[in-house]
Nucleic acid binder design. Structure first.
Length: 717
RNA sequence: GGAAGUUUAGCUCAGUUGGGAGAGCAACUGCCCUACAAGCAGUAGGUCAUAGGUUCGAGCCCUAUAACUUCCACCA
């Protein structure tokens, strides 16, 4: 056996062995129960980051665990075309060459996109393989595969035929940079310091953060109960910088305490104003175009200016005319595109929508009927969103992606429309696969995409297949740096999983990601965990060398082998290699996990403890170390118990604390303390009267036992 | 504005129907007597956020408060 573990050679060997021999190909096998996990397909926008590694490692540990338990496991890999995100990347690339999207024909642009797909899918697949994933490569699926395209079209038409899809002129969010409509969840709000200007509109004053939109004003609204403006309701007032007049209307939604209590109503460019205009049957005047510039007859000389330019010009002109009453600092939540972070423009636009209310109902019911979301806290979030669901804007004014399958339509579908179908389109290429592997078992993903993806998969699965796409959703956190900060380019605190694999090996990466990470919180990740994982892997290797030196001792070998089996789902390479070093010619990946799991947690836990303790006792100086306990605790307590229902312990028992006093004096001291404690409890009449009889009896027995022990040791009573 | 989560040793966190405060890291003290200094043995360190309540008994249950985190909604 080598002095140190050569992880590079080991990984190279097994990566080849596992992938080239299709070792983890899943087959329909009616003698076995299937266990299926469809991996979240990463966006094909860039290489994988530490968050992907975290997600994949959790899934792979679970899959390997289930495989060793005798399930026919399918871990299905894939990638997502991520239309809007990929397109943004390609546009960025073009920009470096001094080109715009419009400079290319549709075909030329699609060629660029295709090159991007090819380039990054190769990188991503290679990265997946380096992560030691035991997935079935023969089933790799890309969301733009022909089969997926066909399924997307089918799904669209099914919804269309059933009346769930409609086209309509509605208020949506428009990204002037991505140049497309967005659904409401694709807009992120963040606080931005702005200014709020008070402007004289004839006899009254209006406060606004967006003076440049005043050309689209069709009214000023006041609260009907506002005594200040009673006389003005129904009257017309002049609109500054124009020769138009607009009416003063009364609307309950106006907050009398905010600003001047009078709100300019710009229905074409504000969500709230749109609703007010609907209620009062007022027209819309569009003054901002798709590029975020002012346009049209109503804007006069401001035409062609960007929103920011027009804002400055309008403010200056109002000031010059004496109509600017006040300027104040103001913090407001501004909506930004979740992809390019550009400020979005609310706009009225003709788009395709999915009518959501009816589709949401079965997904709501599912929570009490077979759908298990862990951690539990996300169930409320799931329900709240479904209960307040809005129609889903599914059309995007992009070039790449799934074209909306209606004649003459050039828009494409929201990427998430195809993602929503993922659990069944990956499996229904052939019926036998679908029948056996679907519904899948566990969906493992980060909680941040519960609305984008998880919920949409649930209602889509229920609608298109009449079945839940999975019975359990396991949501995990986002990997943060060692100080709990988000990893970001600007902070430069990102960690490339491939770097860690190169430097320390894949087992170190996987173990360091899982160890000490609670799955329902954002895990902090950094050097400390990596170091710890390195030490641990080193310890295992050296412990093996030690065992091989004492190989005549069967106890010892058995203990190591059990341990390797338990560790294998987390650290597959080193355990597999050691397994072979011990003389086995089978794959550890297919060895039975060292226990029937149901209800046997305690057996395993105590037996492992026993093994470790035995070894410790026998070879006082040598042991596997505390880390083995930690691993066991993590795997059984955090991973299995909390997240996978069937692994929950059926019984409860506390392990006896191990007391190993060094000498008789300390032992006697310990006995006296025990006696004092028991005596005190038994002297409490309340305890005797009200505590469960068994507990009282236990305490009495304990007292008697320790009294006897003490007597035997020292002769005292 | 609505909701959720967190608060236990210096740090990261365990603590499973209420019945003896735990682990690792860090610190400190010993060990180079070889599987491993990427090591071993040991020591110390806590009003379990705060204030009440329920109970014979509370880290755990209830109420309130505070701090931090997150999600949703609104913001002229």
């Amino acid at each position: 056996m080598d002095k140190i573990f050569d992880f590079k050679a080991c990984e190279a060997y097994y990566n080849q062995h596992w992938v080239e021999n299709n070792v983890f190909k899943a087959n329909v096998n009616r003698d076995k129960k299937p266990f299926t996990v469809i991996m979240p397909p990463p966006n094909i926008t860039s290489k994988l980051h530490i968050g992907h590694a975290f997600n994949c490692t959790i899934i792979d540990a679970l899959i390997r665990f289930k495989r060793m338990q005798g399930y026919e496991t399918l871990m299905l890999p894939g990638a997502d075309h991520a239309a809007i995100a990929t397109e943004a990347k390609v546009v960025e690339e073009l920009k470096k060459e001094g080109l715009n999207k419009q400079d290319l024909t549709r075909e030329q642009f699609m060629e660029r996109i295709q090159n991007w797909y090819d380039h990054y899918s190769a990188i991503i697949c290679n990265q997946f393989k380096r992560l030691g994933l035991s997935c079935d490569w023969t089933r790799f699926t890309f969301t733009m595969d022909d089969h997926c395209k066909a399924e997307v079209n089918k799904a669209f038409h099914r919804l269309y035929k059933d009346g769930y899809i409609y086209q309509g002129e509605r208020m949506i969010n428009w990204c002037p940079t991505c140049h497309t409509a967005l659904s409401e969840i694709e807009v992120e709000y963040s606080e931005v310091k702005r200014q709020i200007w008070t402007i004289q509109y004839g006899p009254l004053r209006v406060a606004t953060t967006r003076p440049e939109t005043l050309f689209g004003d069709i009214a000023v609204a006041v609260n009907p109960n506002d005594q200040r403006y009673q006389a003005l309701i129904g009257k017309s007032i002049p609109l500054p910088l124009t020769d138009r007049t607009i009416p003063v209307i009364a609307d309950e939604t106006v907050d009398m305490k905010f600003g001047t209590g009078a709100v300019k109503i710009t229905p074409a460019h504000d969500h709230h104003d749109y609703e007010v205009a609907e209620r009062h049957h007022l027209a819309h005047i569009k003054v901002i175009d798709e590029n975020g510039k002012l346009f049209g007859a109503y804007v006069g000389k401001y035409a062609g200016m960007t929103v920011a330019e027009a804002r400055a010009a309008v403010v200056a002109d109002l000031q010059a005319q004496g109509l600017l009453v006040a300027t104040k600092e103001h913090v407001s939540n501004v909506g930004q595109c979740y992809r390019c972070h550009q400020t979005v423009e609310p706009a009225i636009s003709k788009q395709w929508f999915v009518k959501m209310h009816d589709l949401a109902q079965p997904a709501i019911a599912a929570l009490n009927n077979g759908l298990n979301i862990v951690p539990k806290k996300f169930q409320k979030i799931y329900l709240h969103w479904l209960n307040n669901i809005k129609d889903w804007c599914i059309s995007r004014q992009l070039i790449s992606g799934h074209r909306i399958p209606i004649e003459g339509e050039t828009d494409v579908l929201d990427t998430w429309f195809s993602s929503a179908l993922w659990p069944f389109v990956t499996l229904n290429k052939n019926q036998a696969d679908f029948d056996y592997f679907y519904p899948t078992d566990v969906l493992v993903t980060a909680y941040e995409i519960i609305f984008f993806w998880v919920i949409r998969m649930v209602f889509s699965g229920l609608y298109h297949t009449q079945q839940l796409p999975f019975h359990t959703v396991l949501l995990h956190g986002l990997v943060r740096d060692s100080q709990g900060r988000k990893m970001s380019k600007s902070l430069g605190n990102g960690i490339d999983p491939l770097d860690i694999i190169e430097q320390h090996g894949c087992d170190v990466l996987r173990y360091s990601l899982l160890f000490g990470s609670r799955l329902d919180r954002d895990p902090n990740y950094g050097d400390e965990k990596i170091t710890k994982a390195r030490y641990f892997m080193n310890k295992i290797w050296n412990a093996t060398k030690f065992v091989l030196m004492h190989k005549d001792n069967t106890l010892l070998v058995t203990a190591l082998e059990s341990f390797l089996k338990m560790l294998h789902p987390i650290a597959p390479y080193i355990t597999e290699q050691i397994w072979h070093e011990l003389g086995h010619d089978t794959d550890l990946a297919f060895e039975p996990f060292p226990t029937p799991v149901k209800g046997s947690k305690h057996w395993l836990q105590t037996s492992l403890n026993k093994i470790i303790r035995t070894i410790t006792r026998r070879y006082e100086k040598y042991e596997f170390g505390i880390a083995a306990n930690e691993l066991q605790q993590w795997f059984w307590t955090d991973f299995c118990d909390k997240y996978i229902e069937e692994c929950k312990p059926q019984t409860k028992s506390k392990p006896e604390p191990v007391v190993t006093p060094v000498d008789n004096q300390a032992l006697a001291e310990h006995y006296r303390a025990e006696i004092a404690r028991s005596s005190k409890m038994l002297a409490n009449t309340g305890f005797l009267a009200k505590a469960p009889a068994t507990l009282v009896q236990q305490e009495q027995e304990k007292l008697a036992r320790f009294k006897e022990l003490l007597y035997n040791l020292t002769g005292e009573h």
